[in-house]
Simulated scan of single mutants.
Amino acid sequence: MNLRSGLLATLLVAAAFLSGCANLPKQVFTSEYGAVRDAGYSLPRIPIEKVASKYHRQVVNYDTREKPGTIIVDTSEKFLYFVMPDGKAMRYGIGVGRAGFEWTGTARIAMKREWPTWTPPAAMIRREPKLKKWAGGMPPGTSNPLGARALYLYRGGSDTGYRLHGTPEWNSIGKAMSSGCIRLMNQDIIDLYERAEVGAKVIVKG
């Protein structure tokens, strides 16, 4: 092979490599927020173009000593990280507790529920008497505050009262608006639900 032929071959290999790179799977899942039919319920499309791109589900580099499967919630940055192998994490945008309702600490996922019933705590009903009609529980549905999925957080065998859950209020992501629970877009909580296991460690940081 002469020099000219060798150079041509090198260029062809480089072009093939670059073409292959262009076809690698995307690591930002902006296209995953379309309408979803799930367990008989119809979740509407989220207008994801109105949500800051940093809050779109994505795989990121993440340096931690926690083992894969651990969930780390950064309430100040409004991110939830699901720790993956090889220094990676799936990152989700979240909504967090408003002033006076923040919390931090370590808990475990004790239960997972699809399309859960929502029962407002007595303290919440006292603050918002209109919720009294749901004292016995609000049935599952697309308007239910817990959304499509809920992960129940316990500490020392006791229910903390806090949840990682979906929400129909996609515009609350990136904000401090909840009564302490960590909320995700419904399409994201469905994804997290499939990844997270009962017993998984959950760390909530301020």
Rank of each mutant, 00 (worst) to 15 (best):
M124R: 02
M124W: 03
M124T: 11
M124P: 04
I125M: 14
I125W: 07
I125R: 03
I125D: 12
I125Q: 07
I125T: 07
R126D: 12
R126N: 12
R127W: 10
R127E: 12
R127Y: 15
R127G: 13
E128H: 05
E128W: 03
E128Q: 13
E128P: 02
E128S: 11
E128K: 10
P129L: 07
P129Y: 06
K130E: 14
K130P: 04
K130W: 14
K130L: 12
K130D: 11
K130M: 10
K130T: 15
K130R: 15
L131P: 05
L131R: 07
K132H: 02
K132P: 00
K132Y: 02
K132L: 05
K133P: 08
W134F: 15
W134S: 10
W134G: 10
W134I: 07
W134Q: 04
A135G: 11
A135N: 07
A135Y: 07
G136S: 10
G136M: 03
G136H: 13
G136Q: 12
G137H: 10
G137E: 03
G137M: 09
G137A: 12
G137R: 11
G137C: 13
G137Q: 05
M138E: 11
P139I: 04
P139H: 06
P139A: 13
P140E: 08
P140T: 10
P140S: 14
G141P: 06
T142A: 12
T142R: 08
T142H: 08
T142C: 09
T142N: 07
T142F: 11
S143I: 13
S143W: 12
N144S: 15
N144H: 11
N144Q: 06
N144E: 04
N144G: 09
N144I: 14
P145Q: 05
P145I: 03
P145R: 01
L146W: 03
L146A: 15
L146E: 06
L146M: 15
L146D: 09
G147F: 07
G147T: 11
G147W: 01
G147Q: 07
A148S: 15
A148Q: 06
A148V: 10
A148H: 10
R149A: 04
R149L: 00
R149V: 00
R149F: 01
A150V: 04
A150W: 00
A150F: 01
A150P: 03
L151A: 13
L151V: 11
L151Q: 08
Y152T: 01
Y152G: 00
Y152K: 00
Y152M: 00
Y152W: 09
Y152I: 01
L153N: 06
L153S: 11
L153M: 09
Y154G: 10
Y154S: 12
Y154V: 07
Y154F: 14
R155A: 13
R155G: 12
R155I: 03
R155K: 14
G156E: 03
G156Q: 05
G157F: 05
G157N: 07
G157L: 04
G157T: 04
G157Y: 03
S158G: 07
S158F: 05
S158M: 06
S158W: 02
S158T: 04
D159Y: 00
D159A: 01
D159H: 00
D159S: 02
D159L: 00
T160G: 14
T160E: 11
T160D: 13
T160M: 15
G161T: 02
G161I: 01
G161Q: 02
G161A: 07
G161R: 01
Y162C: 01
Y162V: 05
Y162M: 04
